[in-house]
Design a protein around this nucleic acid. Sequence first.
DNA 1: TAGTAAATAGTGTACGTACCCGAAAATATA
DNA 2: TATATTTTCGGGTACGTACACTATTTACTA
Lengths: 352, 352
Amino acid sequence: MQKNNELSGVKEIARRANVSIATVDRVIHNRTGVSAKTKEKIEAIIKEMDYKPNLLARSLASRKVFRFAVLIPRESAETEYWKAPLEGINKAWAEIRMYGVEVVFFHYELNDRQTFNNEANKILKDSFHGILLAPSFISEALEFFYKCEAKKIKCVFINSDISNVSPLSYIGPDLFQSGKLAGNLSKYLIPDGGNILIFNVSRELGAEHHLLKKATGFKSYFEENNSSSTVNMLTVHRTDYDSVMAELAAYLKDSTVDLLFVTNSRVSTVAKYFETNNITNIKLIGYDYLTRNIEYLEKGIIDFLICQKPIEQGYKGLLTLYDYFVESEKIDKVQLMPIDILTKENYKYYKN
Amino acid sequence: MQKNNELSGVKEIARRANVSIATVDRVIHNRTGVSAKTKEKIEAIIKEMDYKPNLLARSLASRKVFRFAVLIPRESAETEYWKAPLEGINKAWAEIRMYGVEVVFFHYELNDRQTFNNEANKILKDSFHGILLAPSFISEALEFFYKCEAKKIKCVFINSDISNVSPLSYIGPDLFQSGKLAGNLSKYLIPDGGNILIFNVSRELGAEHHLLKKATGFKSYFEENNSSSTVNMLTVHRTDYDSVMAELAAYLKDSTVDLLFVTNSRVSTVAKYFETNNITNIKLIGYDYLTRNIEYLEKGIIDFLICQKPIEQGYKGLLTLYDYFVESEKIDKVQLMPIDILTKENYKYYKN
DNA sequence: TAGTAAATAGTGTACGTACCCGAAAATATA
DNA sequence: TATATTTTCGGGTACGTACACTATTTACTA
């Protein structure tokens, strides 16, 4: 069996247009050096043939290399979350490296905004075509983004977005809706009229903006449905177990809570507290498919986990840069991730 | 910026081994015509260099074509379900056709097992390297599978599996667990001790085996949890609205039902019945992200939809054949799909 | 109108691999 | 030893595209 030897490709275009391959090449890449007349003719033929360049041959012949930087938090002792996007990025890289894609990784600490600046500056000193970043710290990320724009470097955001700014694409959850879904799920856990606590656990204020979006979405569910539930919010600026425990204990001493919504992956910290103190009457909703969280989901201490495909975010993030540069495709400005619900019953089948 | 001009590729291997490129090529594809000594030497060098062939160049230079047949149900007036796998297949094909992949489609009617045989025979008369099929009718599919095995044609199953048979891969849901999850979801909808009805809607008995697996899984949840709920099952061998309606009405006249579990995408038919008859006190769980189902999910008539990534099933199905033949990768025998839960709140973000 | 610069078009090689074909070496047969 | 066979290997071209380099045509200047 043979590959389709139908006349196709630049050679056939050249033959039909009575020009050389090089001329066809010129109009395809719309370079200069072709008269308007021939250009028009060739373009017509290309359209008529519905010519699609052979990407294999193209990238084989091209000596071009695209360099992408990745700027995301380092996986921390407190949460393994960022392992997932990294895994997705590496998977994508493996698929496209033969097309001439180079990737350099830069990691900052989620509880230290200065490290973001350090890594960002390293990137700016080097030379990259595109950057895949998690803009955890709004003002720092914004500053960096503008510098990139000035240098004509394309950015793709993952995990959380920044308002009023337009990267090549945002790939991640709709944070508001994600929170709203959490609110909705509460109706399956407790009757209306209960006491609900939104619990934010985050060291850096700047990295917290996306948690607040979730909280807002969560609250909106109750407002829109004229719920008689009471929804309060508590924020802890420490992420270690003892601090979280202390703050939570203090709160629970004065107030009754029927359902607790943790706005990020730190839900396992709360679950651990519930477990050690034998608290079984508070329903618990949180985020992310992490081993520690799954453990508590399995045990029934966490009732629902909401997940947003972190691996896929990384995977799509790098592929988006690739599509833009190598395949020069038009890119969706926003690529929202699904809002997945994990329970004790279905988590085994989840693909992060 | 230039591509890595580090010495790599067959040329470098040939240089190091003091042989020609052709000889290296011979050992790579372990063809005959190379002395044991040189073969050994070249293999050592390949290992040492950790040589990875450039797939682009390989497939560009290769004149090989792989022909795959796709044998799945035609999208019917009653359910658009099979549009989704088809979409996934076409997406995958678009990505790999430049690697020399040909795909021919064959469609059978889900309510007529004879059409399966007709199409299957067409496939056997032609010449294909691999087949992607939905083995809806067990005995017919089994017969076809054995004929393919005899002709050394590789098969990939999607959507439902057949026991005691080993295709190249099965890509689809774990039907038992899927049903079990549905059972679990019931606890969020009705208190324990309720009356539950499993409802199968399927014309052909043979195409129903995977529905029964779901039903078994569903029941197992109640057994394992020592539930006091009553679980009955009803099967209708017509798929048109009037027949379904009649059967259901007859059943409901004699029995009270608190929750109804429809084992396939026909749940919208039931929902329509509920809507027109203003039945609001029966919770409804069903399958698949179809426009009609989503409509009733939005309206609150369907409470949960379970989805199993039909598009991805098709996508992965074709890619699996491709990986096996073109990239000669080792293939996972079973590729289970996630069991996704859709509610009114999160369906908008679902990727089928 | 020659002479020159600018615009336009063509030729040829390279990318990394596959594979045909023929040459050389090794072995077998006479 | 001469010839025929077989085994082993190298040369060279092709895949479809990119691009550097060269050749031709056209337009412009003096």
